[in-house]
Design a binder for these strands. Structure first.
Length: 424
RNA sequence: GGAGGGAUGGCCGAGCGGACGAAGGCGCCUGUCUUGAAAACAGGUAUAGGGCAACCUAUCGUGGGUUCGAAUCCCACUUCCUCCGCCA
């Protein structure tokens, strides 16, 4: 959510930001207009309330009965006027809020302007694409042949975009999750295990609602919403809190499954396990001051890169263009790993500085060390990493000519003695 | 699932129709004192919105209602605690 004052005072700046995101900016005029109507009504109704308050106090002190009755009658009438103005104000405020909640965040000044993900800029590439003396296979062949990945069983159980990991495949993913959480703890993050279903207001606070309702699973019986990412509960956990500057930055990490209806990508990436309705992810999250946000964003990118590096994967870092930038993001880096089997760079992490956008929705502030008034914090989030695509990259990069898969060095202690996954 | 009791400022806690944005305490900040600190004393210390400002409005879990006037009365909801039941 943007600050209404920013829109009121610098509408052109906000319009410009929307244009960079390829979004029609006329809504800003609408918002400015509603804001004016709102303030005029406030002026009117609050003046009337002030009058009612002071006269009501007088009534309490009055002795003369007839005079008292007359005042009460006139205040009753004033009360009716107040009620009707309050009703008008409420309607205008809800219209204003609805529009405001639909405005995306303003991109940072160094975010490249572009139309879509093709305009993302590659910042650096680390490692060489691995050379094979044979034709490397895609994971959707490797996995089923080894008996560790079963797409048909997934369809049998739940339908398209589901799969089953079994044996060493399931164990490999568990090892990745365990190892990543431990790595992030060493990097200075605190581990959390949050609910995987949350209330509607938590979904709103993190920016998923109202705009992205159709991509979320919703239990209508209990009114629970299934998290599409651990970012949601890690934002909600501090909702309404005032933090001390001394405790910032606050670094959090959590493993959750993520649930997405994928209505926006119907028909895309259907092959393999690249995009599913349910996937596991280890998330990193930071609360910090606006002054340190850029530095913390770099730190988080470095932490995610270290994860790829330790797994021995070839990866590259991209800066998202304004056309690809997600709704709430101020600035986002993507990390992609090379998958030699499907011959594709796979996005395993998306690391964003959300600025104050989420904090304003969730009302999360910090008290500055100098004792001045509380300010909204900056929030940052990033995957560290998403499981299915990391699994794809590990499987395809560590495959051998006979179709077996070597276990990356860092995961060996967690695989119970398995050093290579072979057909049973 | 049933019965009962709660939810008040950063924290604890009083108030139960009018001078209450809210006693008192703790914490924190400033000052006096002190070589410095502690103690003591004095003052200050919520958030949001509106207004150029003086200042005004709203907020005592949330949403409605009654009333000239609600932290206080009524209704609904959320949530926490205790006990019983049920499940593990």
């Amino acid at each position: 959510m943007l600050d209404i004052k920013l829109i009121r005072e610098q509408p052109e700046l906000v319009k410009d930001a929307l244009k960079k995101r390829q979004i029609d900016s006329v809504i800003i005029d609408d918002i400015v207009q509603l804001d004016e109507e709102r303030r005029a009504l406030i002026l009117d109704v609050e003046g009337k309330k002030a009058e009612r308050n002071s006269v009501s106090k007088e009534i309490g002190r009055m002795q003369d009965k007839t005079e008292r009755e007359a005042k009460i009658a006139s205040m009753r009438e004033l009360g009716d006027q107040i009620n009707s103005l309050d009703e008008q104000l409420k309607q205008i405020e809800s219209r204003l809020f609805e529009r405001l909640a639909g405005i995306p965040n303003i991109p940072d000044s160094d975010v490249p302007v572009g139309v879509d993900d093709k305009d993302n800029v590659v910042i650096r590439t680390i490692g060489e694409k691995k050379h094979f003396d044979f034709e490397p296979k895609p994971h959707w062949e490797l996995g089923p042949e080894l008996g560790i990945l079963d797409f048909e069983a997934g369809v049998k159980l739940a339908g398209t975009r589901f799969y089953v990991l079994e044996g060493a495949g399931a164990r490999l993913q568990r090892a990745l999750i365990f190892w990543m959480l431990d790595l992030h703890i060493r990097q200075g993050y605190k581990e959390f295990y949050p609910p995987w279903m949350v209330r509607e207001e938590i979904m709103f606070a993190s920016g998923q609602l109202p705009k992205f309702a159709e991509n979320l699973y919703h239990d209508y019986q209990e009114d629970f919403w299934w998290v599409p990412t651990a970012e949601v509960p890690l934002t909600g956990i501090m909702m309404g809190e005032v933090l001390d500057e001394a405790e910032l930055p606050l670094n959090l990490t959590a493993y959750t499954a993520c649930f997405r209806r994928e209505k926006m990508s119907a028909g895309r990436d259907v092959r393999g396990m690249k995009r599913g309705h349910q996937f596991d992810k280890v998330e990193m999250y930071k609360y910090c001051t606006p002054e340190t946000a850029n530095e913390e964003l770099d730190n988080m990118v470095a932490d995610a890169c270290a994860t790829c590096e330790a797994l021995g994967l070839t990866y590259r870092v991209l800066l998202q263009s304004t056309g690809d930038l997600s709704f709430g993001s101020h600035k986002t880096y993507d990390i992609e790993v090379w998958a030699p089997g499907c011959q594709e760079w796979l996005e395993v992490s998306s690391i964003s500085n959300i600025g104050q956008f989420q904090a304003r929705r969730a009302n999360i502030k910090y008290r500055p060390a100098d004792g001045s008034a509380p300010q909204f914090v900056n929030t940052l989030n990033g995957s560290g990493l998403g499981m299915p695509r990391t699994m794809i990259a590990v499987m395809e990069n560590y495959q051998q000519e006979d179709g077996s898969i070597l276990i990356p060095e860092v995961l060996k202690p967690l695989m119970g003695g398995i050093e290579v996954i072979q057909k049973e």
